[in-house]
């Protein structure tokens, strides 16, 4: 990491879906770079130990990104406690595959409410807090699938393509308020999300990665931390892949 250890000193960050995987790795890395991190998850009490381990004033804020009132409450808490927000990482997301003929309306709504509307709601409140502080950085976690597609992932892919669309428009809308908005597009990342794949599918997937290994949550966290920092101070409206040369 080229970032100085104190690169994010004094910054307040919020990471949604920070209980595990990319969200957890990102929360840790932001804290290592000096930020005070708010970790978010749905289940009250689930992050207390993690926050203690991360240190540097890390705290938990519990809300479900699909619940607009709860999202608002979460941001009100941050505003009350810290008076500002500098970094928002919209990571909370769900992955459910279904071939199009078997994609129920419930599945569609679940995925969109979490992966897309959740990002918009958090960006809405996040931007308001950032504007007060004179600017900030929003990093949305999209996906390779949202750019290039994949069998069985029309719904998930649509939600992630939506995240990319939101990123591009938010970047333009919020630039005047010095809020940068970027997205990362992870490829195959070795998290719980792919752990459940059948062995043959998993094997095939790994074979499609140029670098021959799945990415780690830390690989993605490094990119997010870079985009969140002043190192990327003139970067906005970008979708950056972190996929080890994946082609599917």
């Amino acid at each position: 990491m080229m970032l100085r250890p104190d690169a994010l000193e004094g910054r307040i960050a919020l990471v949604t879906g920070a209980g595990r995987g990319i969200g957890l790795a990102t929360a840790k890395m932001l804290a290592e770079a000096g930020a005070t991190v708010w970790l978010n998850a749905r289940t009250v009490g689930s992050l207390e130990q993690t926050c203690a381990e991360i240190g540097n004033g890390a705290r938990a804020v519990y809300f479900d990104v699909t619940d607009p009132a709860a999202v608002r409450e979460g941001f009100v808490t941050i505003q009350k406690e810290c008076k500002k927000l500098d970094i928002l990482v919209n990571n909370a997301g769900i992955l459910r595959d279904a071939v199009i003929e078997m994609a129920s309306v419930e599945l569609m709504d679940d995925i969109w409410r979490t992966n897309l509307r959740g990002v918009l709601l958090c960006a809405q409140y996040g931007a308001r807090l950032m504007a007060r502080a004179g600017g900030g950085s929003i990093v949305n976690v999209a996906s390779y699938i949202g750019r290039f597609g994949n069998t069985g992932q029309a719904v998930y892919g649509a939600s992630k393509a939506g995240v990319i669309g939101a990123t591009l428009s938010l970047a333009k809308e919020l630039a005047a308020r010095q809020i940068r908005v970027n997205a990362v597009a992870p490829g195959v990342i070795d998290t719980d999300m792919i752990a459940d794949l059948p062995a043959d599918k998993r094997e095939k997937l790994l074979g499609s990665i140029g670098m021959g290994r799945p990415g780690t949550a830390e690989d993605v966290a490094k990119l997010i931390t870079f985009l969140a920092s002043d190192m990327a101070g003139y970067v906005t409206g970008q979708v950056v892949g972190v996929d080890g040369g994946l082609v599917i």
């Binding site: 608002r72 941001f75 505003q79 504007a131």
Partner: peptide
């Protein structure tokens, strides 16, 4: 919105 929120110590709903 920002001025109102600061002046009254509130966070307005969307």
């Amino acid at each position: 919105v920002t001025e109102l929120e600061d002046a009254y110590g509130i966070m307005l709903e969307t």
